[in-house]
Design a protein around this nucleic acid. Structure first.
Lengths: 185, 185
DNA sequence: CACTATACGGAACGATCGTTCCGCTTGTCA
DNA sequence: TGACAAGCGGAACGATCGTTCCGTATAGTG
């Protein structure tokens, strides 16, 4: 692979991340090419389809989340780790707006590579939930899909109503408090 | 207005509701025309733009929600009324998928007529929250945007991950429990 | 320095979709 | 029933966007 090709690939990836975050996943490829300072043909040389480019971007975002889910490590209280992860999760999703759509559609049309990473994320989150559950910090019976759905839902709502981060944090407080208490039925 | 014109207008409205609910707001007008059994020109004769058609549909949905918010009426406990409304709200939003997008975008690009109805909805919800708050059934300081955001967020998450209604109900349980307790800070 | 495979740029193509236009059909009323 | 206005159907237009193609430029090599 030629030196300029390597450089261009990196610039395209970064440009795509910026453009998709700012304008959503439906932003035209031409915009990505312009932002990267290359021609459209060059974008398609590196990523044969728009979806491939999209996947490349989303994949790194997902991997960061997987790392965050696996990070809690040594000695930290299972409940604290879980609720801290929810905050990390939400802030990462809020920064990378394109992740919202990707996670919203989890299970529908995610492609090969992404599917594996989504599974990694789900199993990581599941482990955290089970530990927190065992520690009595989370109501019993909560599923991974519910937690991810709640966090993504809040982020999506904040994103689309152009509310501030403070509003998102208050919504997360409410969700977290709801997760803590046992169902009062 | 000619008799067949009246009939066609009604058929277009119903077809549009079905098509937009099934395929999202970005469904082509041609599909609406086909479903209604008329030509595209006829659709545009009745609704000069796609957005006008969209507004006509969404408006009725919003009005139903406003009615539901105003319904609690006599003697019912303020907290019960509020939490019952959340359920009603969510089920209406889930049935009319197009409402999700409309409510998600509340405050961004809603047009004249809709804006008024959205305001009606917000003030209705706000009243319920204040009453429930006074009755000690809701944590103090919750805003209307937060409540609407949480409910819409849950519906959106359920909608996009093609989860079942049971999942939505469990998420709503969590949210409602979170709204009930005072913030434990 | 010359030569070639690699990579680039961007015009052009085809598909999709909102919207317009006009010739034809059909209610309505005398 | 006849004639006119109101309404209809659907082909066609223009804009947008993903994708392809090919003539040109350039990095790497001897």
């Amino acid at each position: 692979m030629r030196a300029d090709a390597v450089k261009n690939r990196a610039r395209i990836l970064q440009a795509a991340e910026e453009v998709f975050s700012a304008n959503g996943l439906s932003a035209p490829i031409d915009l990505v090419a312009e932002q990267a300072g290359v021609g459209v043909g060059t974008v398609y040389r590196h990523f044969p389809t728009k979806e491939a480019l999209f996947e490349a971007i989303v994949l790194t975002g997902l991997q960061e989340l997987v790392a965050a889910a696996a990070a809690p490590a040594d000695g930290e209280d299972a409940g604290d780790a879980f609720y801290a992860f929810i905050r990390t999760f939400a802030s990462k999703v809020s920064i990378k707006h394109d992740l919202i759509d990707a996670l919203s559609a989890a299970g529908i049309d995610i492609k090969s590579q992404c599917a594996m990473t989504v599974e990694d994320l789900e199993s990581g989150v599941d482990l955290m939930i089970r530990r927190a559950e065992a520690a009595g910090a989370v109501r019993p019976g909560v599923t991974t899909q519910e937690v991810i759905g709640l966090v993504v839902g809040v982020c999506k709502a904040v994103d689309m109503s152009s509310a501030e981060d403070a509003s998102r944090d208050r919504m997360l407080d409410i969700v977290c408090d709801g997760l803590r208490v046992p169902s009062p039925t």
